[in-house]
């Protein structure tokens, strides 16, 4: 069996789940990218397969506190409290936090947005990558207090308009992950990279750095260099490159499995 090609390969059930997961109705937009009510509805639709092939149920996924209106955040003995109002995945949040609290910990511990991962907590692995005002940054080295007025996009907010972000689809198709822990950071990073390439931003490998920035088609090594801030210990790098190349070029990339 050589050079097998296949599309993203969602079956009908999966397509339905994905469609249902993502809503165009702004009233259903929350920081989760999808509301609790809707998620429950979707899980009810699913009798088996894709999304159900996992341990967690909706109650665990949305463990209390799940409603995060301004002022309802439980506060226990906050020192040097700081107020910060900003948007997460298009929805406004207002937090009062300990001045020491990083955006990463606010997302994970206060907002229940656990898709953003803590891998090293020191800016050395990229697992906590989120997109703030269009730029990929590390949420572990960003104080929540510094997010005032900003727009934060996390992995939970990438899917829109009834479909997964093309980068998410490409990661599934090319198996761009194993344990899945670096994956949200990789995908956020890759999504932002596509914009950087469109703007013609340079990297250390750019040969003609003096040329006027124009939209660039990145070589494999250029993508590798620009994705080197996201460590994957399982070693999915070649698959991550394949996924990004496919989205970047707009051309379907072949998958290779070769049997002797």
């Amino acid at each position: 069996m050589t050079d097998q090609k296949q599309a993203a390969d969602f079956n009908e059930d999966e397509k339905k789940i994905i469609e249902d997961m993502i809503t165009g109705d702004p009233e259903d937009m929350t920081i989760f990218g999808v509301s609790r009510r809707q998620f429950l509805k979707q899980l009810a639709v699913i009798t088996g397969g894709f999304a159900a092939a996992q341990y967690i149920g909706p109650d665990e996924l949305f463990a209390a506190p799940s409603v995060l209106a301004p002022g309802t955040i439980p506060i226990n003995s906050i020192e040097n409290g700081v107020n910060a109002s900003f948007n997460v995945n298009g929805a406004p949040v207002a937090l009062e936090v300990d001045s020491r609290m990083t955006l990463l910990d606010s997302l994970r511990e206060k907002l229940q947005l656990t898709g953003t991962k803590k891998g090293c907590d020191h800016g050395q692995c990229g697992a906590c990558t989120v997109i703030i005002d269009g730029n990929r940054v590390l949420s572990c080295l960003t104080l929540t207090a510094c997010c005032q007025g900003k727009n934060v996009t996390t992995i939970e907010g990438l899917a829109k308009n009834n479909q997964l972000h093309p980068m998410q689809t490409a990661f599934i198709k090319h198996d761009g992950f194993q344990c899945g822990y670096c994956t949200p950071g990789q995908i956020c990073s890759a999504v932002a990279l596509m914009d950087e390439a469109k703007k013609g931003e340079a990297s250390y490998l750019t040969e003609n750095i003096r040329e006027k920035p124009v939209s660039v088609q990145l070589s494999d090594d250029e993508i590798r260099e620009r994705m080197s801030g996201n460590i994957c210990r399982c070693g999915a790098y070649p698959n991550i490159i394949a996924a990004i190349k496919e989205v970047h070029s707009g051309k379907e990339a072949a998958q290779n499995w070769q049997f002797a």
């Binding site: 999966e14 999304a51 967690i56 947005l113 656990t114 898709g115 990661f171 899945g180 499995w257």
Partner: peptide
């Protein structure tokens, strides 16, 4: 070579660790 059955959860951040 089917896609991972847990893939959707992993690319959307819904898989819980």
């Amino acid at each position: 070579p089917i896609n991972r059955v847990d893939a959707l959860l992993k690319v959307t951040g819904a898989a819980k660790y």
